[in-house]
């Protein structure tokens, strides 16, 4: 039986709906010993900022029940070093590269970053990370404010024709409202969810397990929340959704697709099994065949309530 796994996100055509999430896959080179990278639907890079960032002191991660906390603090070499040292490897893979970018202090930094990336052919799409919970310079996130979200997406939209993805935060009252703002301002897609703000305490030392205290929770523990948010956003906006949050196998990837995600993204599970994204691609294909479904797009948002 012929099955179609390809999906479209804005102008981006993915050969399958499985991508890897920002911050969980480095700059892909870290995984080259373990998987055939060329089989991935897309690769989202670790978030890049204008200037290099040292990140937060250790400990930066800790394990929790069926999940983990992280507060890396957006450590990255800055855009110029990225272009010189990391992009050449990514370019050769033949996989759409989605650049994740973030501002440190002023939202205007997004414009500088996007202008720089807009002229690079190897960059297939840009993901605006307006939802990283681990940047201490900022009291609140752009993704927590519908107007701020609208404003930054609109300004970025004016300067690039590349596919624009807005990454949303679950640390809000209504994620659908923020998704609506992103759509209204011209975002081609939304990706959700970023990590949930959380905290874990070492009772012997009476100190937080993460050096900076509050961190981002990921892994299977957050999946039901993420699936619900994808469903809410699916019912509110028309642009495609990239769903993520605790996907660890084919079944959990399918939950997101059924809830309304056109593509799914694998995060924490990459740490546990570097091959997991490829296993999920095969698993999706098998599911389509077993259920006599010709096209994965037919499944998107098809959950019956």
């Amino acid at each position: 039986m012929k099955t179609n796994l390809s999906v479209e996100i804005g102008k981006l055509k993915l050969k399958n709906p499985v991508m890897v999430s920002s911050g969980t896959f480095g700059y892909a080179e870290e995984f080259k010993d373990f998987i055939d990278l060329s089989k991935l639907g897309a690769i989202v890079t670790k978030t890049i900022t204008l200037k290099p960032r040292r990140g937060n002191p250790a400990p930066r991660t800790c394990e929790t029940s069926a999940g983990m906390l992280n507060s890396i603090g957006l450590e990255n070499p800055g855009i110029e070093v990225f272009i010189q040292e990391k992009l050449p490897f990514l370019k050769k893979l033949g996989v759409p590269i989605i650049m994740s970018v973030a501002s440190e202090e002023e939202p205007e930094e997004f414009l500088e970053l996007v202008a720089r990336l807009d002229i690079i052919e190897a960059v297939a799409a840009i993901e605006l990370n307006i939802s990283c919970p681990n940047v201490r310079e900022k009291a609140s996130l752009i993704a927590q404010d519908p107007e701020a979200t609208y404003k930054i997406v609109q300004e970025v939209r004016k300067i690039t024709n590349k596919t624009l993805i807005t990454k949303l935060s679950p640390n809000v009252t209504s994620i659908a409202d923020i998704a609506q703002s992103a759509e209204d301002a011209g975002s081609d897609a939304v990706s959700l969810i970023n990590t949930l703000a959380g905290m874990s305490i070492d009772i012997k030392q009476r100190k937080p397990k993460i050096s900076v205290g509050i961190a981002g929770l990921s892994g299977p523990a957050i999946r039901p929340i993420a699936v619900k948010m994808v469903w809410e956003v699916f019912n509110k906006v028309k642009i495609p959704i990239i769903g993520m949050g605790g996907i660890i196998d084919t079944a959990s990837a399918l939950e997101f697709i059924l809830a309304g995600a056109t593509a799914v993204s694998i995060g924490t599970a990459n740490f546990i099994n570097p091959k997991i994204s490829l296993e999920i691609i095969s698993g999706l294909k098998k599911y389509l065949i077993e259920n006599k479904i010709g096209d994965v797009n037919e499944l998107v948002g098809s959950v019956k309530i």
Binding site: T24, G26, I72, P274
Partner: peptide
């Protein structure tokens, strides 16, 4: 150090 990925991707164990 506590590690999450062990392969240099997560930048957790610095």
């Amino acid at each position: 150090e506590h590690m999450s990925c062990g392969i240099g991707a997560c930048l957790g164990c610095v």
